[in-house]
Design a protein around this nucleic acid. Structure first.
Length: 714
DNA sequence: GCGATCAGCT
DNA sequence: CACAGCTGATCGC
């Protein structure tokens, strides 16, 4: 939870993510994203009155954040005072003192934060220096190096201060499995369940907050099933999301909520109350996205943990892990870092201490900074050996020792000076063995027990436990393997076009510009969706292509050993990662992961009565648009414009209108012309050509290829 | 009645 | 497994 008080010391007349107390005197407001802990005071009558008396006072945010904010009636009064700034479009803003007429210009740039839809970081540039407020963010390693607007003249900008999301700024949270890794675990779990029958449904126990949308869209895309939500009016102008969610309850994937939803699930009912019509009880598993973290030397285990007969936890994080934060800071090298969050069990001073060695004067040795774009951190393959050789130079290992006692978080003053407390000498380190782990091969088995994230016992115990599980799973999974294999074989080539998740699609205002290849597969998928989705409610014709569990799920209400683990075993996932951070997934058998055509039955199986009095259909007048997008009758013209234009058209329009497009297409190969450091592992152009030709042809890129690209290093 | 704050819960 | 937000109790205005 953010404890940022709203103001940065360099630009104190601007208030960010806080709107109470002193912030009532601000000359401009900024909102990084629509989570309540960043909106304190935003709907207070006193602020509303001030707005009404002011001519200049505005709230700046991303277009998506504006859309989400104004969807709530409580914030409607902001309508005339919000200025949406396009992401990655430097915009000059005047901070005007309405009493004196004094003004200060500042250049503000919104950078995608990867936290939830619309979330951004704010880069301020003005006479008082360049500062970065991160809001809440999750960026994978290396992503910061690809943010062009953090660079100038081929080098990273001289950033005075970073106001940092320190939620996981603690070595306890050293690593959190990547988004792709977590998503894939969830996809596998969902696949293993919903393909058993049309009565097998999953309930995603998501918190009432934005940020799970990419999960919904990816699940929807993978299984060709829309995700049931209570309402989706906030997405009415976001076709990329809207297309994948529904208020129609007859689907096998639910993320609906009810005040007593856990009770519903315990009673084997979905929170929305839907039941199967012919009396067959639904078979429900719940999947609770929750953060799982692992220590530096912890052998990372499963991203899915079974917590009960039919309940699972799935790894999921909105925030950067410690190692991701370190990567971010080691690239930006700000002079000062101010934490926005005090991690659980730590004090403000603890965080300052942890951050100290990550400031420029410690990590850079006072040298003048020169960082060619992309120099330090090209995207790493997060599934290969981390080999963070630079880690020990930057980080004092004494902080690896977990705090035994939870320290009460003291209220820190708004502009808390650095304590000046220096780090303890490095010879206190307890962790200098430098053990390098074997390559992590992710498989998506799940643990059938509560998993401990305790750092204290992270060593042998954990490892042993996970090994044992793996063995038992191996022994008991043969049937599932065979079933899954046959399923995969028959589904064939189709899944080759499965793309890596395009997170920015949901985190940026505009649809991301896609390459020709991407677009082709996009079209293919749209056609697929259009043609296949009706099958959800009609008898399946191509039974061959689906996994028919032999005499399977009869008795149990959960995934049996055979049912579940077999499929997991066969989907050991190897990844190769290109420089833009996008990832292709293949399994160990060099076969693509599946797009499942679930063996679903007629909609007559579903009881569609609205008998529970719950679940208001906020948008019931959605039309299917031939372009593949959903369109609300009532929504503004801008929406239909968005919907009917291809990404190409929008690009053309931008160019014609001279709308600044300072964001270069980070998907294209221009990234590879960035100079590399001698010690980095940049692929050679010819190697990249091979890689990209494969990708362009829709082929999967195997880990072997990636290995070659990295010079045989695993 | 409304808002702020906190405990409890998930 | 700890993020984000809801509910309900309490207090003050």
């Amino acid at each position: 939870m953010s404890s940022f008080q709203g103001r940065m010391r360099e630009y104190p007349s601007a208030s960010i993510d806080r709107f109470d107390r002193d912030n009532l005197l601000a000359k401009a407001y900024f909102l990084s994203h629509c989570h309540k802990d960043h909106m304190k005071g935003l709907r207070a009558p006193v602020l509303k009155r001030r707005l009404e008396c002011s001519l200049k006072l505005k709230l700046y945010c991303s277009p998506v954040t504006k859309e989400i904010l104004l969807t709530s009636s409580k914030y409607k009064f902001w309508e005339n005072y919000i200025i949406a700034i396009e992401v990655e479009t430097p915009t000059q803003i005047s901070l005007v003192d309405e009493a004196t007429g004094e003004k200060e210009d500042v250049l503000v740039t919104l950078l995608p934060a990867g936290h939830c839809p619309g979330s951004v970081m704010f880069l301020f540039e003005g006479v008082d220096g360049t500062v970065l407020y991160t809001g809440d963010f999750r960026l994978a390693k290396g992503e910061v190096a690809r943010m062009e607007l953090l660079h100038s003249g081929g080098r990273v900008k001289d950033i005075q201060s970073v106001y940092l999301d320190t939620t996981f700024c603690d070595p306890r949270f050293y690593q959190i499995p990547s988004r792709e890794e977590c998503l894939n675990g969830i996809l596998d779990l969902v696949r293993s369940w919903i393909t058993l029958s049309s009565y097998h449904v999953v309930w995603l126990n998501c918190k009432a907050a934005y940020g799970y949308e990419y999960l919904f869209t990816n699940l929807s895309e993978e299984f060709n099933l829309k995700v049931h939500l209570n309402k989706l009016d906030m997405f009415k102008n976001m076709p990329e999301i809207l297309h994948h969610v529904t208020t129609e309850r007859a689907t096998q994937i639910h993320a609906c909520r009810h005040p007593r939803d856990e009770d519903f699930i315990r009673g084997n009912r979905l929170p929305c109350g839907i039941t199967a019509k012919n009396g067959t009880p639904l078979r429900i598993i719940s999947i609770k996205p929750s953060t799982m973290w692992f220590g530096e030397r912890t052998k990372r285990t499963n991203v899915i943990v079974r917590t009960g007969e039919s309940s699972y936890r799935a790894c999921f994080s909105f925030h950067s892990s410690f190692s991701e934060l370190r990567d971010f800071l080691s690239y930006v090298q700000p002079v000062s870092i101010y934490p926005n969050v005090v991690p659980m069990g730590r004090s403000y001073e603890d965080v300052k201490k942890i951050l100290k060695p990550l400031c420029r004067k410690c990590s850079g040795g006072g040298e003048p900074i020169y960082k060619p774009l992309g120099k330090l951190k090209r995207s790493r393959n997060c599934f290969s050996n981390e080999e963070d050789g630079d880690y020990k130079d930057l980080f004092d290992d004494s902080y690896l020792i977990p705090l035994k006692q939870k320290l009460k978080c003291p209220q820190h003053s708004e502009f808390d000076n650095e304590t000046g407390a220096l780090l303890q000498e490095r010879d206190q380190t307890t962790n200098t063995e430098g053990t390098s782990e074997p390559p992590i091969i992710l498989n998506t088995q799940f643990l059938e027990c509560e998993e401990s994230n305790d750092d204290d016992d992270e060593e042998e115990e954990d490892e042993e436990a996970s090994t044992i599980h793996t063995k038992s799973e191996l022994n008991s999974a043969k049937e599932g393997v065979i079933a899954n294999l046959s399923s995969q074989l028959s589904t064939g080539e189709k899944a080759c076009v499965t793309e890596s998740p395009r997170w920015d699609m949901f985190f940026k205002a505009e649809p991301v510009l896609i390459s020709e290849t991407d677009e082709d597969s996009e079209v293919a998928r749209e056609q697929e969706l259009g043609s296949q989705s009706p099958k959800l409610f009609s008898d399946s014709e191509d039974g061959d292509s689906t996994y028919h569990p032999s005499q399977t799920s009869s008795q149990s209400t959960h995934i049996s050993e055979q049912e579940s683990q077999g499929s997991f075993l066969d989907t050991e996932i190897h990844l190769s990662q290109n420089k833009t951070g996008s990832v292709k997934f293949t399994n160990t058998k060099d076969k693509p992961l599946l797009k499942v055509n679930p063996d679903v039955e007629d909609s007559k199986n579903w009881d569609l009565q609205q008998g529970d009095g719950f679940h208001p259909d906020y948008i019931s007048n959605l039309k299917y648009n031939p372009t593949g997008s959903l369109l609300n009758n009532n929504i503004k013209e801008t929406c239909s414009e968005h919907l009917s234009k291809s990404a190409d058209c929008q690009q053309q329009e931008r160019e014609q209108n001279s709308i600044p497009v300072s964001k270069p297409d980070s998907q294209n190969t221009s990234d590879f012309e960035i100079p590399s450091t001698p010690d980095s592992e940049s692929p050679q152009p010819e190697e990249l050509n091979v890689l990209y030709n494969k990708l362009a042809a829709g082929k999967t890129v195997k880990i072997e290829a990636a290995k070659q690209l990295r010079g045989g290093k695993s």
